[in-house]
């Protein structure tokens, strides 16, 4: 059982990376990654929703008729998003204000409904949790990476710690919408290149 969870975790995190392979969840990946901290907090909030919603969905699968499953899942997801939003407002008001309407937008993150539809609906609880954690780690990782990249070039910092030397001239554009698109394009291309490299090696030593 533990092994199946681990395998589901690996598949979800690497081979099916939600952002760079499947192109899901791009709105938050672009919108809240001007710094690494924002990326991390958005990733964690989304992870909470993914793990809870997928677990509930897999427990409910015997009781929900197929024809109404999408609205049911939507309500389950929206409920957990409301919880996440209220908790953030109460304990992290600054973060909550900075992320603004992008926290409620987790509801329509197609990655979540996609994993519920494609995985939680058809699998028992243990692999589902493995898949949920793998998806969460991959998504959070992608957001932190993009946030750190943009923060590094835009402000010379990573997680608020100065990394670049005095001579570094911050590229203000990386904090703007344009920088989000450029940053994602570059990371995506790097990921593609790495995957192509990996495939080539796999062919060479079979």
């Amino acid at each position: 059982m533990a092994q199946r969870s681990v395998r589901a975790f690996q598949t979800a995190a690497l081979r099916n990376n939600p952002v760079f392979v499947q192109g899901l969840g791009l709105c938050p990946a672009l919108a809240v990654t001007s710094t690494a901290v924002y990326g991390l907090s958005m990733g964690l909030a989304t992870s909470f929703v993914v793990i809870c919603a997928m677990t509930i969905a897999t427990l409910l699968k015997r009781f929900v008729p197929d024809s109404v499953r999408i609205p049911v899942y939507a309500v389950v997801i929206a409920t957990f998003v409301t919880i996440a939003d209220q908790v953030m407002r109460a304990f992290f008001p600054d973060l909550s204000a900075a992320l603004g309407p992008y926290v409620p937008l987790i509801v329509v993150n197609c990655m979540i409904l996609g994993r519920v539809e494609a995985f939680a609906r058809k699998n028992p609880v243990a692999p589902t949790i493995g898949d949920a954690v793998g998806t969460s780690v991959a998504f959070t990782g992608a957001l932190v990476l993009l946030g750190a990249f943009r923060e590094l070039l835009g402000q010379g910092n990573v997680f608020g710690v100065q990394v670049m030397g005095e001579a570094f001239e911050p590229l203000g554009i990386m904090g703007l919408p344009t920088g989000a698109f450029f940053g994602l394009a570059v990371l995506w291309a790097l990921f593609n290149a790495a995957r192509a490299q990996g495939k080539q090696q796999a062919v060479v030593r079979p």
Partner: peptide
């Protein structure tokens, strides 16, 4: 287009330039 940039990556780059124009 360079191989690694084909597909979504180049779309993002174009979107970046469009965002710049719209700003």
């Amino acid at each position: 287009i360079p191989r690694a940039f084909r597909g979504a990556a180049v779309t993002m780059a174009i979107a970046g330039i469009m965002a710049l124009a719209f700003s």
